[in-house]
Nucleic acid binder design. Structure first.
Length: 631
RNA sequence: GGCCCCGUAGUUCAAUGGACAGAACGCGAGACUUCUAAGCUCGUUAUGGGGGUUCGAUUCCCUCCGGGGCCA
């Protein structure tokens, strides 16, 4: 329990003695720190008492006596404001150095995890986070970046709450999209390879996809023009040959051949999805994304077909006259029917997902884990909000199939990334590719770093530039609440000043710089001097001004901010908080000297800065951002 | 057509039903020259329209307008 929560309980006790019953959550923060540390508005209580709030405030004023962590109480119109005992809070926030961040893999104390919309505790439960889940026919783009950062950030925040996270990624490596790339390559590729074209594998593969879409559209135009022709035959725009099969039909044929195990088709598929995967993996590596297991649609679809057969047998699924298999939901759910298998018997990604859920929750551990046992308490799918309906349907299907874990499935949904011209569309070439964006940011930062630190080697500049560039992109995408659309203008690059990732890094680096310099000086840090507690009374190195107090109070809020952000799956709350923390530090930095101040104030301020650095560092880590000691 | 999300300053984003709606970018001015000026200070401009619930609405409800998404 955080020290602020203990203080809140004291506030509740104090109000109780005045005959006012409130909950912890009724206590708010005043709009200005000068008004106090906590506040309680009396409107509700006044209504119950049948008198004006300000009158009630005056009436209870003398009954309100400070106790516990509360030092002072004041009435301000309809509000009761509380000041905390700064020395006590300081002891919690500053004196015991904040325990170092436990990274993945380390032993950690298990704390109860609250799940959104549920009071059910989840002690040390295993939570799976599936993220990115790309199609194997194109490079990762800006939308995938949002997905990756959101998923990873929520994963880290849940870890901070005591959950054990298992990170997974599903590759949609088969199906119509890859068939389209394959067909175009087959028709017009003539032995070209990523090497021969000097392209990254994923870029190479998507170029055929884009070509397919282009040719298919041309074909449609011609088809529309020849629709009334008595012969009715279609010309394929690409080859000019008369053919009864459209490109679309040929791509669908390729899917059938793939599922039938056609050797030539499988070989081509292996080659192309391999190229795509190689390119995607390079980007994932650059992003530092690490996974505990991968799923492949190409390995799941057969198991999905079995579920279809079984579902038909049990009468849960229905076969239409066309041959397509679908499921209908009970009316109360308000969900439209969902097709699970095409009329021609080929599968779609919903088919594979029928098998994915059981695979994830299998007590034996799925094949993707190499037989490891993962008993999941919860499973999260981090996927864009355009799939909201789909996931409602999918989870409902799991339930109808009788899976007990259906209620432990969660769709972590987020808004699309929008460009000035609208939604990004691969087929129209309006996409901001992840690599291109990161490269552009890198170049901009590189020049900036070089201008500031001429003495660094090329490699050192490059390393810093990459971290700063990524921090900018990561913070930019995470500072917007997940459900909002992100508007991104590629022409206006992401800023490095103001409310940005680099500002946070800069703040961290300035704190680190002071602490480095302090180590070189004679006066030891209090902790190094072996003092169990700082002397905190006025004039002895305790809180001497508001700048310090605001920084301390801000630090004290960290753990509950993280808990709430984790609970609501919303890293933007943490992002906003970290910015305000950095801002508060900047005020402190401008207002008071640290190294030049007198002992014991100097020691106190150094200890405070160590806490600030620790919290800022932990916060950045939870936002997937790597701090820099020097910038 | 049905369902879902969104509409806040010129732009991009904040605001568990509470105190004068906050930032940042942009634009305009300025200070220090002590620990990193990617910083700090001051100024500038906003809740799409109309109803309702409430002591109090950016927030909840209805409706219209606008943007986006999903389903057929």
């Amino acid at each position: 329990m955080s020290v602020l929560n203990i203080a809140r309980q004291d506030v509740v006790k104090i109000l109780k003695t005045a005959g006012i019953q409130i909950a912890l959550s009724d206590i708010v923060f005043p709009p200005d720190y000068k008004l106090g540390d906590f506040s309680f508005p009396l409107f509700g209580a006044a209504k119950e008492a049948g008198i004006a709030p300000a009158i009630l405030a005056q009436k209870i004023a003398e009954k309100l006596k400070p106790q516990g962590l509360v030092e002072k109480i004041e009435i301000a119109g309809p509000y009761v404001n509380f000041w905390l005992k700064r020395e006590e809070i300081v002891r919690e926030v500053v004196t015991p150095p904040v325990p170092p961040l436990k990274l993945r893999g380390g032993k950690k104390k298990v704390l109860p995890l609250r799940l959104r919309g549920s009071e059910r505790g989840l002690r040390g439960g295993r939570v799976m986070m599936e993220m990115i889940s790309p199609n194997n026919n194109k490079p990762l783009h800006l939308g995938h970046l949002r997905n990756a950062f959101l998923g990873e950030s929520v994963a880290r925040m849940l870890e901070a709450q005591g959950a054990k996270l298992i990170r997974t990624c599903l590759f949609n490596d088969r199906g119509l999209h890859i068939a389209k790339s394959m067909l175009a390559y087959k028709l017009w590729g003539a032995g070209k390879t990523p090497e021969s074209e000097r392209m990254k594998g994923d870029e190479f593969v998507v170029s055929w996809y884009v070509l397919f879409e282009h040719k298919a559209r041309e074909e449609q135009k011609i088809a529309a023009a020849t629709l009334r022709s008595p012969r009715g035959g279609l010309k394929t725009a690409a080859t000019g040959e008369v053919s009864g099969h459209t490109l679309q039909a040929q791509a669908e044929e390729l899917v059938r051949k793939w599922e039938a195990g056609d050797k030539e088709t499988l070989e081509l598929w292996k080659k192309m999805s391999g190229w795509a995967l190689e390119g995607i993996n390079m980007t994932l590596k650059r992003l530092g994304m690490k996974f505990d297991a991968f799923y492949y649609e190409s390995k799941l679809w057969k198991a999905g077909k079995k579920v279809v057969v079984e579902g038909l047998k049990r009468g849960i699924f229905k076969k239409e006259k066309s041959g397509a298999v679908l499921i209908e939901f009970e009316e109360a759910l308000g969900l439209p029917p969902k097709v699970l298998q095409r009329a021609d018997g080929t599968t779609i990604y919903a088919t594979a997902d029928l098998a994915l859920g059981p695979e994830k929750f299998s007590a034996r551990g799925g094949s993707a884990f190499g037989g490891k046992k993962y008993k999941l308490a919860h499973s999260i799918w981090c996927v864009g909000q355009e799939q909201n309906l789909y996931f409602k349907q999918l989870f409902a299907i799991y339930k109808m199939l009788g899976h007990k874990w259906a209620d432990q499935c969660e769709h972590l949904s987020y808004g699309l990334v929008f460009l000035p011209e609208g939604k990004m569309k691969t087929r129209e070439g309006t996409v901001v590719e992840a690599d291109a964006l990161l490269n552009k940011m890198y170049e901009l930062v590189y020049e900036e770093v070089k201008a500031r630190h001429a003495h660094l080697t090329e490699a050192e500049i490059g390393e810093r530039a990459e971290i700063i560039a990524q921090a900018a992109v990561r913070y930019y995408l995470l500072s917007v609440s997940p459900k909002s659309l992100v508007h991104f203008d590629p022409k206006a690059s992401i800023s490095f000043t103001g409310h940005t990732g680099p500002y946070l890094l800069y703040t961290y680096a300035r704190i680190a710089s002071i602490l480095r310099k302090a180590k070189g000086s004679n006066a030891p840090l209090p902790a190094q001097a072996g003092q169990p507690h700082l002397k905190l009374r006025g004039g002895e190195g305790g809180v001497t001004n508001d700048c310090e107090w605001r920084l301390i109070f801000s630090i004290a809020r960290f753990s509950e901010i993280v808990a709430q952000a984790a609970d609501q799956r919303d890293p933007s709350q943490l992002a906003q908080y970290l910015y305000s923390l950095a801002k508060t530090f900047s005020d402190f930095y401008e207002a008071v000297p640290v190294l030049q101040s007198e002992e014991p104030t100097r020691g106190f301020r150094l200890a405070l800065l160590r806490s600030a650095r620790e919290i800022l560092g932990r916060g950045l880590h939870l936002l997937t951002i790597q701090p820099l000691e020097e910038m």
